[in-house]
Amino acid sequence: MTATSSGIDVHTLEEAVRRATRAPSIHNTQPWRWRVEPGRIELHADADRRLVATDPDGRDLLVSCGAALEYLRVALAGVGAGSTTQRFPDPEQRDHLATVTVVDGHTMLDDENLYAQLDRRRSDRRPYDAGAPAQLVRALARRARALGADLVAVEGQARDRLIRALDDAATGQPHRPGYLAELLAWTHRYAGARDGVPATAVPKAGPGGDARHLQRFPTGSLPHRTALGPDAGTLCVVTTAGDDRLDRLRAGEAVAAVLLAATAAGYATCPLSQALELTTTRTRVQAAAGAIGYPQLLLRIGRPAENCGPVPETPRRAVSHLLF
């Protein structure tokens, strides 16, 4: 094994990449590639895995890669490695999103504590029995701000307007050319595939009263206690001051930090991107959140229903297939 200047060998860096791939991504496409060298790791976007119809402006891809970048930082902290991150280091290589360099020095204890959540976090698409308390939301918002984004909880009548925007996106997006083909491709993967959204990660169909914004994917086999709605989870919008590629990448980093911290606190989470993939509903999300900045992703946070069981682990590609 080759050791770095900080004593972290390349095998350990590759293991950190493996844990980083547990990050959430749009349709579990895992749209990233990595280069591991002594003392550094490069993150690259995999443009071949961009969902052209679902994600026409590439927002979802960059947010997904940003989440993997934050997972990587936490994974390194978990093995006692400090790190620095240079985002978009080479303007001539648009797909080279970041270079993470291992440095000497102590890591933040809190980051080390989040290390245990990397393999525990799941996207729980079932309805929640209760939302997140205000104290937790404030703590999660502080984490988002530390990474260059804001987390805005939407409540009251604004929450009703936000749900209507989510439902309208769920109704309108299937009419976009190519959208249903992409959805089918990533929810009905070929045998042995290590990506996509399996039926075991999607709730069964409930009786009446289902909420459309909770039903992006075809009916699955994940058991739940009640119908898919109404949902009592807290709806939050992750926003950034700008809307360029760096803003979207940093939003993904903030999303990952929030999801890991919420998991550590015992709460279920689920990212919601559908309303931000259509221009008409994206502006309504911004208005409902009262946000001055730009919405990059929605998060649902809450207490899962009792006696409905855990969400199974979703598949991930082998690291050997992701390395340059």
Score class of each variant (00 low, 15 high):
residue 127 P to H: 05
residue 286 Q to D: 10
residue 191 A to R: 15
residue 249 L to K: 08
residue 170 A to W: 04
residue 168 D to W: 04
residue 214 L to D: 11
residue 165 A to V: 13
residue 254 A to Q: 00
residue 318 A to Y: 11
residue 92 E to P: 08
residue 93 Q to Y: 14
residue 270 C to A: 14
residue 31 P to F: 01
residue 140 L to A: 05
residue 313 E to A: 12
residue 66 G to I: 00
residue 145 R to D: 06
residue 158 A to S: 10
residue 171 T to D: 13
residue 297 L to H: 09
residue 27 H to G: 06
residue 156 G to E: 11
residue 6 S to A: 15
residue 286 Q to V: 05
residue 296 Q to I: 05
residue 80 G to F: 07
residue 179 Y to D: 08
residue 209 G to N: 04
residue 284 R to S: 11
residue 41 I to Q: 00
residue 162 L to M: 01
residue 183 L to M: 12
residue 229 G to N: 03
residue 92 E to T: 13
residue 58 G to P: 01
residue 33 R to A: 07
residue 86 Q to R: 15
residue 294 Y to R: 15
residue 105 G to Y: 03
residue 160 D to S: 04
residue 270 C to D: 09
residue 289 A to H: 11
residue 36 V to H: 05
residue 252 G to L: 04
residue 7 G to L: 10
residue 191 A to L: 15
residue 141 A to D: 11
residue 54 T to L: 14
residue 20 A to H: 00
residue 244 D to L: 01
residue 215 Q to K: 11
residue 85 T to A: 10
residue 3 A to Q: 13
residue 231 D to C: 10
residue 69 L to A: 05
residue 47 A to L: 11
residue 80 G to S: 11
residue 93 Q to W: 09
residue 321 H to K: 15
residue 58 G to N: 03
residue 112 E to Q: 14
residue 28 N to P: 09
residue 291 A to H: 05
residue 276 L to T: 00
residue 273 S to P: 08
residue 257 A to T: 00
residue 295 P to I: 03
residue 148 G to R: 12
residue 158 A to M: 12
residue 222 L to T: 03
residue 169 A to K: 09
residue 36 V to S: 02
residue 126 R to T: 06
residue 232 A to T: 13
residue 274 Q to W: 04
residue 75 A to V: 06
residue 276 L to W: 02
residue 297 L to N: 09
residue 89 P to N: 09
residue 79 V to G: 06
residue 195 D to F: 07
residue 277 E to K: 05
residue 194 R to P: 03
residue 262 A to E: 04
residue 279 T to W: 10
residue 55 D to W: 08
residue 219 T to V: 15
residue 90 D to A: 08
residue 63 V to A: 02
